[in-house]
Design a protein around this nucleic acid. Structure first.
Lengths: 118, 118
DNA sequence: TGTTACAGTTACTTTTAGTAATCAGCTGAC
DNA sequence: GTCAGCTGATTACTAAAAGTAACTGTAACA
């Protein structure tokens, strides 16, 4: 007996594949948090180290490189003393804002559910 | 000199924290893909093994347990021969649909950008 | 001269994930 | 009756990823 699918299997597969593609870029524990932090402000390395809770210098450095390679973030060395480096979302990086916002919304509600508080 | 923030720092922190909370639940390479697969259909263990591209039995088993603990998925043993086990999103699991959809949308556009094809 | 801040990097350890084999219960074929 | 195959896993072993803490080098500050 051939199963009658409840939904268009082609659309399902496309949907699942698209999620897979997105997660391939956003893989690892830190990228989404880094992007979320950069959604509001341009930040320096040390700022990010403070904002992204729990990340180490090594991982931050590595993840930023990867985000730069994928054209989601730009790195700008400023001519200050000591030198400072600014990271900011590219225009393309900002297209992730919707994803970040829906995650934030869910996370916010989840915290309410778990703690029972506002 | 105290920096004048461009945005409400309280709201920023809340936003970033909310994303952090969401990612704490959705951590690892597989959970989001599993949830995406279950968005459309109830699926059996073996179905998921096929649908979630690249996952191993060990990881699938582990991730499903974790999702069950977090009340995003239910596990139902059916009285068939051989026994089959159905996994489905809980009502709470379905609240992630918006997240999944925005990821799918982004992933779909990203693929277009990279391949230049539809 | 010693301390601090900047943006990382390096060597080493721990954790997590991947691979492939195996388990147990049952069916149907030979 | 026993062998292969399906179900949903689990186990031992290996490889990859992430975490930790120390360190680099430049320059301002005290």
């Amino acid at each position: 007996m051939i199963k009658e699918p409840k939904h268009d299997p082609k659309k399902c597969t496309q949907h699942i594949m698209a999620v897979h593609d997105a997660m391939y870029i956003l893989n690892g524990r830190w990228k989404i948090s880094i992007i979320a932090s950069l959604c509001f402000n341009t930040l320096r390395f040390t700022d990010l180290l403070r904002e992204v809770e729990g990340i180490s210098g090594k991982m931050l450095s590595r993840e930023l490189k990867n985000l730069e390679e994928n054209q989601l973030v730009t790195r700008t060395v400023l001519n200050t003393q000591p030198i400072t480096v600014e990271y900011q979302l590219t225009e393309y990086g900002h297209t992730l804002k919707e994803v970040i916002d829906s995650l934030a919304k869910w996370g916010y509600n989840h915290r309410k559910k778990i703690t029972g508080k506002e």
